[in-house]
């Protein structure tokens, strides 16, 4: 296998006394789509910023595209496309003017043709004179992505790119990401959405600055070793009340008319559920553990250093 696109070890970043990213070691292969998951404030954005040269790590080292993240920041910037969490192009410039600006900064030639092709790919040729600030969330996101890949980067870092975007636009966005990855682009994308995590080749889960799980979705779910039971019946609400805090039960989550019950200790969970199901007249059966169940579990286990 060729050199990894990202290979960092022991990345640590402190803001004052608070350690926001704590000893993160991560490797991403070329052409891979890595989903970077974690709750709000877990250090996803900070980690991404360190890897694309926007923040200086307090500790740790590593390479991005074979370039040193401490000493070769400028070279990294030329080969990485970074899409920020908040739309950060100029709202008071038109779509075309924004793209022109980016093309100019990367010294793309001929800038005019590159911008024209990008506009055509985006389907925004007729609206190129519109101010970027007047675009809807979905279009802003597409514009930002187009601007980030215009200079043909080898690595794309996307920070919660689909926040506030409707499902159809999200679907199209992910199709585009996969198309780009097939072309050899490595993608690191942070997200909260479980369905998006499942569209990644691999995922890494960070919580309170620590990387606590990584692998394929299947591996992460398997490694969590959770048992999940689903209860159905007219009195699931009552069952939920009885199950909360009961022996072997870690999570109780209603999904419509059903109840998902998750626990680490399979035997204890099954025993408890059987008793409650009996008492409330619900039907209980074993189910697949979902990625979401795993994440809720991981979040609960991680020590809270924000308090």
């Amino acid at each position: 296998m060729s050199d990894p696109a990202i290979s960092v070890t022991g990345l640590t970043k402190r803001f004052g006394t608070r350690t926001v990213v704590d000893d993160v070691t991560l490797e991403v292969a070329k052409g891979e789509i890595l989903g970077f998951l974690g709750p709000n404030g877990s250090g996803k954005t900070t980690t991404i910023r360190m890897m694309c040269g926007l923040l200086e790590p307090d500790e740790g080292k590593g390479q991005v595209l074979g370039l040193d993240i401490l000493r070769q920041r400028n070279a990294i910037k030329r080969r990485v496309g970074y899409m920020t969490q908040k739309f950060s192009f100029y709202e008071d410039l038109t779509i075309e003017e924004n793209l022109r600006f980016v093309a100019g900064l990367y010294g793309m030639k001929p800038a005019r043709a590159v911008v024209r092709d990008t506009l055509a790919d985006l389907g925004l040729t007729t609206r190129k004179g519109q101010l970027a600030g007047s675009l809807s969330g979905g279009w802003k996101q597409r514009l930002a992505l187009a601007a980030c890949v215009m200079h043909k980067p080898d690595l794309l870092m996307l920070d919660e790119p689909t926040a506030g975007v409707d499902p159809k636009a999200r679907r199209e966005f992910w199709d585009e990401i996969h198309r780009l990855a097939v072309g050899g682009l490595t993608v690191l994308v942070s997200t909260h959405y479980m369905d998006e995590a499942e569209r990644c080749h691999r995922i890494a889960y960070i919580s309170y600055g620590k990387l606590i799980a990584q692998g394929t979705v299947g591996e992460v779910v398997r490694d969590a070793a959770l048992t999940t039971m689903v209860l159905t019946g007219p009195r699931v609400a009552e069952a939920a009340q009885q199950l909360r805090g009961a022996s072997g039960v870690d999570q109780v989550a209603p999904f419509g008319n059903t109840l998902h019950v998750v626990g680490r200790d399979g035997a204890a969970l099954r025993a408890t559920v059987a008793i409650v199901a009996e008492a409330t007249g619900c039907r209980a059966e074993a189910s697949e553990t979902s990625l979401e169940d795993v994440f809720i579990q991981l979040m609960g286990q991680a020590t809270d250093n924000m308090a």
Partner: peptide
Amino acid sequence: RGTMENLLSMPAT
């Protein structure tokens, strides 16, 4: 406006 992050992520000295 949040555009600084983007500006810094691009190659401008």
